[in-house]
Amino acid sequence: MTNTPSSQRTDWNISLLGGLKRRGPGRMPADTVVLTPVGGADLDLSDAEIAPVTSVTKISIAGGVRLRVPADVTVEVEGFSLIGGRRVEPGTPGPSGRVVRVRNYSVFGGVSVTRG
């Protein structure tokens, strides 16, 4: 059995109703998957330790992604939402070169990215 650091593992969040809420300091897994019929992902990564490339994948019928990242992190958004938009506050990429990739697949729910 190999001991994989939490920054390199996939964090699966599966629920019937409800989503994922994460705030505060700590290490963000390199890959996070949120799978729920109804629920979104509310992630505040402004104080978190972020890997050079971090991905968040959210799959649901209803629910979007609300993400807060440091100003120097590049954010890439892709996916599909029948009803819901994308709003990404511009940032200034820093020397760290950190990237957060957001993949949102839903019928109702968009992506909102703020910086702080």
Results as ranks from 00 to 15, higher is better:
residue 11 D to Q: 01
residue 11 D to V: 00
residue 12 W to R: 09
residue 12 W to T: 01
residue 12 W to Y: 05
residue 12 W to N: 08
residue 13 N to E: 07
residue 13 N to W: 07
residue 13 N to R: 07
residue 13 N to I: 06
residue 14 I to N: 15
residue 14 I to P: 13
residue 15 S to Y: 00
residue 15 S to Q: 04
residue 15 S to G: 02
residue 15 S to H: 11
residue 16 L to I: 11
residue 16 L to C: 12
residue 17 L to R: 07
residue 17 L to V: 10
residue 18 G to D: 02
residue 18 G to F: 02
residue 19 G to F: 05
residue 19 G to E: 04
residue 19 G to W: 06
residue 20 L to Y: 06
residue 20 L to R: 10
residue 20 L to W: 01
residue 21 K to A: 05
residue 21 K to W: 08
residue 22 R to T: 10
residue 22 R to D: 11
residue 22 R to G: 02
residue 23 R to E: 14
residue 23 R to F: 10
residue 23 R to P: 01
residue 23 R to W: 09
residue 24 G to Q: 12
residue 25 P to M: 14
residue 26 G to S: 13
residue 26 G to L: 11
residue 26 G to Q: 05
residue 27 R to G: 07
residue 27 R to D: 12
residue 27 R to S: 11
residue 28 M to H: 03
residue 28 M to K: 01
residue 29 P to S: 05
residue 30 A to P: 01
residue 30 A to R: 01
residue 30 A to Q: 04
residue 30 A to M: 00
residue 30 A to K: 09
residue 31 D to G: 10
residue 31 D to M: 05
residue 31 D to V: 04
residue 31 D to S: 02
residue 32 T to M: 03
residue 32 T to I: 03
residue 32 T to E: 08
residue 33 V to C: 00
residue 35 L to M: 14
residue 35 L to H: 11
residue 35 L to R: 14
residue 36 T to G: 01
residue 37 P to Q: 08
residue 37 P to I: 06
residue 37 P to K: 11
residue 38 V to Q: 04
residue 38 V to P: 00
residue 38 V to S: 00
residue 39 G to Q: 07
residue 39 G to C: 12
residue 39 G to R: 10
residue 40 G to P: 13
residue 40 G to S: 15
residue 41 A to T: 14
residue 41 A to L: 12
residue 41 A to G: 15
residue 42 D to C: 05
residue 42 D to P: 02
residue 44 D to G: 12
residue 44 D to C: 10
residue 44 D to E: 08
residue 45 L to W: 14
residue 45 L to N: 14
residue 45 L to M: 12
residue 46 S to Q: 09
residue 46 S to K: 01
residue 46 S to T: 14
residue 46 S to L: 11
residue 47 D to P: 03
residue 47 D to A: 14
residue 47 D to W: 08
residue 47 D to L: 13
residue 47 D to Q: 14
residue 48 A to L: 15
residue 48 A to H: 15
residue 49 E to Q: 15
residue 49 E to N: 13
residue 50 I to P: 13
residue 50 I to H: 09
residue 51 A to N: 13
residue 51 A to W: 02
residue 52 P to L: 00
residue 52 P to N: 07
residue 52 P to I: 06
residue 53 V to H: 13
residue 53 V to N: 06
residue 53 V to W: 03
residue 54 T to M: 15
residue 54 T to W: 03
residue 54 T to L: 09
residue 54 T to D: 03
residue 54 T to G: 08
residue 55 S to T: 12
residue 55 S to M: 04
residue 55 S to Q: 07
residue 56 V to M: 08
residue 56 V to W: 06
residue 56 V to N: 06
residue 56 V to H: 08
residue 56 V to S: 05
residue 56 V to C: 09
residue 57 T to A: 10
residue 57 T to N: 11
residue 58 K to S: 10
residue 59 I to M: 04
residue 59 I to E: 00
residue 59 I to F: 00
residue 59 I to L: 07
residue 59 I to N: 05
residue 59 I to W: 03
residue 59 I to G: 04
residue 59 I to D: 06
residue 60 S to T: 09
residue 61 I to S: 13
residue 61 I to A: 03
residue 61 I to Q: 08
residue 61 I to E: 06
residue 61 I to N: 13
residue 62 A to R: 06
residue 62 A to I: 06
residue 62 A to S: 15
residue 63 G to T: 01
residue 63 G to Y: 02
residue 63 G to R: 00
residue 63 G to K: 10
residue 64 G to H: 02
residue 65 V to P: 05
residue 65 V to H: 06
residue 65 V to Y: 08
residue 66 R to P: 02
residue 66 R to V: 12
residue 66 R to F: 03
residue 67 L to G: 10
residue 67 L to A: 00
residue 68 R to H: 14
residue 68 R to Q: 12
residue 68 R to I: 15
